[in-house]
Design a binder for these strands. Structure first.
Lengths: 146, 146
DNA sequence: TCCTTATTGATACATAGTATCAATAAGGAT
DNA sequence: ATCCTTATTGATACTATGTATCAATAAGGA
């Protein structure tokens, strides 16, 4: 499945500009989330982090995940496999597809979602300020392999 | 906020036809979920259930919630207020709006979502078999009250 | 009414996430 | 370069949420 890439440097910059100090754990976790092709839980990120930094604390990982989510750098994946997994946020590309065969995430152009939201606002009268959309199925690669 | 209604009888029928026995807990929980205007967690449903049936067991409620979800009678609400709340499923109406002010749920016509899915299938090449869409904001009633 | 078996309730356990606090380390002041 | 202040860390304990086990119960057909 083709994947767009993330620039870990930009994440560090975003964290620092929000007043958060630069630490080793930060860089470790940013690398882990930025380079994973599939949704990761805090617990999984903790396991991976301890491979290179065995003294990494569990709570620290949960705290950093919270910060990354608050800054919008990672997004929670809802649905299959629970609600505790995260993927990197790609700006302007917020329609997430998760393959039920290989588990990988793909980001789709979000223009159709923006259109849908605008249409729903007009027909319902509600003021829509946020949305969550997740699509599930078999990705193109898995279909070809089957 | 206008609400469509649920027929608890149909839920009982669906449960029974799936081979599940008719019990008092079933009817209690169906009533609780079918008549709630906002998302309920299993824990909250347990509290409510014990008001009329104090001996109701905690695990029993979780089991029934799982059955109702598996049968598609209730759906998990993802996002704000966590991922452990459920709303009744209205067939063919799967676009859920949650008001961040009053907490109530509204169901929107899902045709735009079906169109979006079909469009995304064609442009991405993925085979989409399931979706989760949640919209958040201020409902029309809350806007008028403000 | 009896009998079989799914369901229940109680309990213990497992998993996910949070609060606390002394120890550490970042980074500005000196 | 060293000190000082304070955010961050790691360890621990705790809470919340969900699951497994199992004897007791009750549904519903024989």
């Amino acid at each position: 499945m083709p994947g767009k890439t993330i620039n870990p440097e930009e994440w560090l910059t975003a964290l620092n500009e929000s007043g958060i100090r630069v630490t080793a754990v930060q860089e470790t976790l940013i690398d882990i989330f930025a380079h994973s092709g599939y949704p990761l839980s805090a617990e999984e990120a903790w396991e991976i982090a301890r491979q290179s930094r065995p003294q990494t604390g569990r709570a620290t990982v949960y705290r950093m995940v919270e910060k990354l989510e608050n800054l919008g750098l990672i997004r929670r994946v809802h649905g299959y496999q629970g609600c505790s997994h995260f993927v990197p946020t790609l700006p302007e590309l917020m329609m997430l597809f998760i393959c039920l065969s290989c588990g990988r995430a793909d980001y789709l152009d979000s223009q159709p979602l923006e259109d849908l939201i605008q249409h729903s606002e007009h027909t319902s009268g509600h003021h829509i300020t946020d949305s969550r959309l997740q699509l599930f199925g078999d990705c193109r690669a898995c279909q070809e392999n089957a």
